[in-house]
């Protein structure tokens, strides 16, 4: 059975370059570094979110009314 790991492997410049290419994005080198820095921050946020045990059936992802 698959298990969610809150702390996934940290991205690297090489992995970011690969993922950008897979997403169909051809960007200059400085963008890779900038993307990596932002992905590292996002990964922390994602880990915070994943650590919260919210049952997917307990709330809709497609409706919000304040």
């Amino acid at each position: 059975m698959a298990e969610t790991k809150p702390n996934a492997a940290r991205p690297t410049e090489a992995s970011v370059r690969t993922r950008l290419a897979e997403a169909g994005l051809d960007v200059p080198d400085p963008c890779v570094t900038e993307t990596l820095a932002n992905l590292l921050v996002l990964q922390d946020h994602v880990a915070t979110l994943r650590a919260f045990p919210l049952d997917p059936r307990s709330a809709s992802a497609l409706r919000f009314e304040a």
């Binding site: 993922r19 993307t35 932002n38």
Partner: peptide, 16 residues
């Protein structure tokens, strides 16, 4: 660019 690479599952988790 980082946002484009974010898995949709994480976005939906945030919305949920």
């Amino acid at each position: 660019l980082a946002g484009i690479l974010l898995p949709s599952e994480d976005y939906l988790r945030a919305q949920r």
